[in-house]
Computed example of a mutant assay.
Amino acid sequence: MSTTTYKGSCFCGAVELSVSGEPEAMGYCHCDSCRHWSAGPVNAFTLWKPEAVEVTKGMDNLVSYNKTPKSYRKWCKTCGGHILTEHPELGLTDVYAAILPELPFKPGVHVYYQEKVLRVHDGLPKFRDTPEDIGGSGITLEE
Rank of each mutant, 00 (worst) to 15 (best):
S9C: 06
K49F: 00
P69H: 14
V53H: 01
V63S: 08
T130M: 15
N61D: 09
K106H: 15
E24Q: 13
L62S: 07
C12E: 07
A97T: 06
C29V: 08
I99D: 01
L90T: 00
F127D: 00
H121M: 14
N43G: 13
L92P: 00
E51M: 00
L124R: 09
S137G: 15
N61C: 11
S18H: 00
F11K: 04
G136Y: 10
Y28A: 09
Y6E: 01
V63P: 00
H87C: 15
E51C: 03
P104K: 14
H82C: 02
H36L: 13
C79G: 04
G58F: 02
S9T: 10
W75E: 03
D94M: 07
V63E: 01
G21T: 03
E22L: 08
P107V: 08
G58W: 06
K126L: 02
R35D: 12
C34H: 07
Y28L: 05
P41A: 13
S20V: 14
E86W: 08
C31N: 05
E51Q: 14
K74A: 09
D122R: 09
E132R: 15
K77G: 03
M59T: 14
M1E: 05
E142Y: 12
P131V: 03
Y113A: 08
L141Y: 08
F105G: 11
T56Y: 04
P50N: 05
G135P: 00
L124Y: 07
H36Y: 09
E89M: 13
P23Q: 02
V63H: 07
E86F: 01
Y28C: 06
C29K: 01
I134C: 05
L118F: 11
D133H: 14
A14G: 07
G13W: 01
E22T: 12
V63Q: 04
P41I: 04
R119G: 09
V117H: 12
D32K: 12
K70G: 07
